[in-house]
Structure formats: C-alpha cells, structure tokens
C-alpha cells in the first residue's frame, strides 16, 4: 500500500490523519464478547481491530509439552484473510509465527502459571482488521481476555507502538506511517509493576530519540491499562451478579 505524495507531517505539525504526534487513535475495548471462550475481548485502536479468546487452564491432547511445575502458555497470533486490503493467505506466515512467540513472551511474565501445573492456557489473537500496531493491540486484547477468564495474573499489560516519520516521533502509528516512516517501535508492559515485557525496534533512532519514544510509549501504556481496568470494572459492575 504505497501512497506517493502523502505528507505524513502536515505544515501545521499535525499527522496525515489530523492527530498530534503524541495522540493515540480512538480506543474501544469490550470484554466477554465470545460465549464459548473462558475469557474474551475485542480491542480497537482506530481502524485496527483485534479479537482475543482465552481457554484454560486445561489439559491439552499433546501431553508431552506440559511442564510439571507450571502451566504452559500457548499463543496464536493470526490475521484473518479479510484483515488486509489484499487477501491474506489464512495459513500462518513466518511473521505470524514469530509474533505469536513475541506476544507469548510478553504475557508469560505476568501470568501466574505456577498455580496450574501440567496444564495449558491457550490465547488466540485474531486480527480482524489491520491498520498498524496489531501486535500491541493483540497484547492489550489478550490481557483483557485473561482477566476476563479469571486467570491469576500479576498485573494487566498494555501495548502501543511509537514511530518516527519525517524525523518526528509519533505515538500509535498506523499502517501508512509504519510503511512510509523511518522507524517503528512496539512496546508492551505492565505499568503497575514497572515492567516492560515487549520491546522491538525496526528502523533507526538516535539514543535520545529512543529514550523519548520509550517515555511516550510508557505514558500511553499507563493510559491504556487504566482504560482496561475501567472496562473490566464497568463490565463487572453492570453485567456482573454483584451489587
């Protein structure tokens, strides 16, 4: 999707979609959207829309993978064939397999797997519509779905990507900014614990830019996790059987 002649940073300093460099896209979160899953969530960052479903702890058919002292976390990140403008082959690509691993490692430090030895916790992340930042949106959705499933976790995690376009650091980049910009840095973590669980950088940044980008991401993750808590509280207060 190469769009020539699009100014990523306009004369007035705003981005191509009218956001300021430090603005997030409009975020929407919903939990408990699937009745068959133990926990589920739908998260939207602008036009990026990701569904997450959590099953378990359960005993899977392949028992050789199970660990005697803790539960294993199995994560599948997948993009629906209709999630991109060109049809995406439904078979898991190299990129999806790698992202599944990266997201698993972003969730593993916060899930209290020691409580469920010899079981597996399955996390399915399905990208319904891709417009940049799908892995960080996926982590956010997975965190909500885990909390919705009642799986013990150390804290909630959230994620966001920071990019560099035309020399300017911009928060929560979309597809156009990602493909035409100079750098893309997805970050995920748990602000309650001060823990970064995912950090990648594609492109070139100076040390000062990296530091500033990390600060921008961290501040945004704080806001995203606060939103997660608000959504969970709202859900349990309105839809729950308490009160």
């Amino acid at each position: 999707m190469k769009v020539e002649g699009v100014k990523l940073i306009r004369e007035d300093g705003l981005r191509h979609d009218g956001r300021r460099p430090e603005d997030l896209r409009p975020i929407r979160m919903e939990v408990g959207v699937l009745s068959n899953a133990d926990g589920s969530a739908l998260v939207e960052f602008g036009r990026t829309r990701v569904l997450a479903a959590v099953y378990g702890p359960r005993e899977p058919p392949q028992k050789f993978m199970l660990l005697p002292d803790r539960a294993i976390l199995r994560v599948r990140y997948h993009m629906a064939p209709f999630s991109t403008s060109d049809r995406k082959s439904p078979a898991p690509s190299r990129r999806e397999i790698e992202l599944s691993k990266v997201i698993r490692e972003a969730l593993e430090p916060i899930v209290l797997t020691k409580q469920f030895p010899r079981t597996a916790i399955d996390v399915f992340i399905e990208v319904l519509q891709a417009d940049g930042g799908t892995r960080t949106t996926g982590v956010t959705a997975a965190s909500l779905a885990l909390a919705d499933a009642g799986i013990p976790m150390k804290a909630l995690v959230g994620g966001v990507a920071v990019g560099k376009v035309e020399g300017v650091l911009v928060l929560d980049i979309d597809e156009v900014e990602d493909s035409m910009g100079e750098a893309d840095m997805p970050v995920a973590g748990a602000p309650d614990l001060g823990l970064i669980t995912l950090l990648q950088l594609n492109g070139v940044m100076t040390e000062e830019e990296f530091q500033k980008a990390l600060d921008m991401a961290w501040d945004a993750i704080r806001r995203i996790v606060d939103m997660e808590k608000e959504v969970l509280r709202w859900k349990y207060n309105v839809g729950g059987d308490s009160k």
Binding site: D38, G39, P57, L112, A147, D148, A149, G150, I151, P152, M153, K154, L232, Y236, G240, D241, S242
Partner: peptide, 25 residues
Amino acid sequence: PEVMGLLRVDALRHTVSVAPLRIRY
C-alpha cells in the same frame, strides 16, 4: 490482587483477600 474481584479485609486475621466476581472454571 491476581484476579479481578472484590477486596476483603479481615482485620482479625490481618489478611486481605480478593474474591473473584465470576468463576468460569
């Protein structure tokens, strides 16, 4: 807390616990 739930403070036993609001399994 490790789950979403209601905070319970037991002053007698000096214990805090969190009762999950919905147990799915």
